[in-house]
């Protein structure tokens, strides 16, 4: 079960629990999260299911490259972290 964490800037607006997910890809893990917590989906993904332009998904500290299908594999001890890409003012 990979773990998931969020920047405090997301947690300020919406519940980000639970901390542990099932799934063997980033997409599967996030779908597990959204099934439990549907409101989170639109904070992370756009309408077509890609990562939002100004959001970054990290796995063990590395930003994922496949932002459209989120196909990267994740293992039980991996850490997914979601943050905003620096922009704006």
């Amino acid at each position: 079960m990979p773990t998931i964490g969020f920047t405090a800037n997301v947690a300020k607006y919406v519940d980000v629990s639970p901390p542990r997910l099932t799934g063997d890809t980033v997409r599967a893990a996030l779908e597990d999260l959204f099934a439990i917590n549907p409101k989170l989906r639109s904070y992370v993904l756009d309408d077509q299911g890609a990562v939002r332009t100004h959001v970054v998904v990290f796995v063990n500290g590395e930003a994922i490259a496949d932002r459209a299908t989120l196909s990267e594999a994740v293992k039980d001890d991996d850490e997914i972290f979601i943050a905003q890409a620096l922009s704006g003012g």
Binding site: N9, V10, Y13, S42, Y43, V44, D46, R52, H54, V55, Q84, A85, S87, G88
Partner: peptide
């Protein structure tokens, strides 16, 4: 419009 996190 959260900017980073989209329209709500």
């Amino acid at each position: 419009d959260h900017g980073h996190f989209g329209g709500k």
